[in-house]
Design a protein around this nucleic acid. Structure first.
Ligand SMILES: [Mn+2]
Ligand SMILES: [Mn+2]
Ligand SMILES: [Mn+2]
Ligand SMILES: [Mn+2]
Lengths: 222, 222
DNA sequence: AATTTTTTTTAGACAAGTCTAAAAAAAATA
DNA sequence: TATTTTTTTTAGACTTGTCTAAAAAAAATT
């Protein structure tokens, strides 16, 4: 039950986890290859290995899903990734678009004490700098009810709570137009021909394209 | 000049560096193998590779030394190792005997910004929890004049400034007998038959064996 | 249903790092 | 100096993770 996995194996588990979360069905070889910037044949090899270790369910030609063990490990790696991101932003002066690459390395450091002490040091943060929830020691984390900003109707008010595409470019764009997590918003207008939106964000009025709006998560209205 | 080395390569450079520092002459294949808990044949292979990259000087049968580039990299890895040790002890509640293994992993995380921000966050510490000096951004660090405690004569006073053997067992022993870095000491007596020493440490009188005394660094007297 | 296209797997190769066993060189001893 | 012992290197093999090219299976089109 307690393996010592390589960084590569951990990265595969994480990739499978995050792909599964969006589609909610067995993940294809090609999708994994794309996510990890590798080749489908390499994925097949690795998936066989993970299957032997009972970390994934794999049937030839039918995609991959995580076993309970595999899921636990994936979530634990994600926990470390997000905790480190919080540390980098809060204490080392990193911008939110600079943390991912470094967290990608730090997430593989193996020490239960390190992870849990870091969690305590940070005062048990619930969300990372991009609004993604941080699993606790037991692997539990809030499944937030979020909607994409682009789905809001005219007149609706909400709050920005997360970023879907956390690429450096997108994050820098958000900085430039001063869109921050936690900002209160109100939809003023939607252009029907391109679905761009005019909105109030905090005290400012701004227009954003559909592309942008569909990469921002807002608090789900009840 | 700016390679991206594997963790293994970095560990070899560090090992060669530290072996060179004690003997001040070309390091033997066997010594490296012992230090890294591997086999001499593996060392030969790796040393050839590092030599191709011009990180070590290597002549068959004549041992290994670091080139200027190799030395810089080794020192940079040591810098990271020691900074992380400080972080773990100061901020995450680690004991000084628990940090080495984790720092051994953290030292390989690649991010100049991370290293330098951590350094600043820690307020540019000059020594790690074991009294080892921390190289600055440029790789400079004080070459301290230290002596081993066992070399002190009766009546001499000094201060404990470093630990030679930082094994967990030894560090735990020091905790048990309450020997701390920075402690003021005075040699009261030396048994001639076993070279054990009776000393004042802070306000306590204690007797330690030669073995212990030769693993403690004290401030060099002028 | 037959054919074409796409996806996935297999086969075989390679690089990194390691090992054991054997050969070669160096060092120590007689 | 000759012989023995120790150290170091080479040869060949193995593991992990990767790749390309080809084969097989599944899915999409006609
Ligand atoms: Mn990673
Ligand atoms: Mn994040
Ligand atoms: Mn290391
Ligand atoms: Mn140390």
């Amino acid at each position: 039950m307690k393996f010592d996995l390589s960084q590569t194996e951990e990265n595969y588990l994480k990739a499978i986890y995050s792909l599964f979360v969006v589609s909610n069905k067995a993940v294809s070889t090609n999708k994994i290859a794309e996510k990890l910037a590798t080749k489908a044949s390499s994925v097949t090899d690795m998936v066989k290995k993970l299957s032997e270790k009972e970390l994934v369910n794999y049937v030839k030609y039918q995609g991959v899903s995580l076993t309970e063990n595999g899921r636990e490990i994936a979530i634990h790696v994600i926990r470390k990734h997000r905790l480190w991101e919080v540390f980098l932003v809060r204490h080392l002066g990193f911008q939110w678009d600079e943390v991912h690459e470094v967290a990608e390395q730090l997430e593989h450091v193996k020490s239960v004490k390190l992870t849990n002490s870091l969690d305590a040091f940070l005062d048990f943060p619930r969300y990372d700098p991009h609004g993604d929830p941080i699993p606790d020691k037991e692997g539990n984390f809030a499944k937030r009810d979020v909607a994409v900003l682009s789905s809001l109707k005219i007149g609706q008010e909400s709050k920005i709570v997360g970023i879907k595409d956390s690429s450096s470019e997108f994050l820098k764009y958000l900085d430039k137009v001063e869109i921050k997590l936690g900002a209160a918003i109100k939809v003023l207008h939607k252009e029907s021909f391109d679905n761009s939106m005019m909105l109030w964000i905090d005290k400012k009025q701004i227009s954003i394209s559909q592309q942008i709006a569909s990469n921002l998560y807002v608090k789900q209205q009840d």
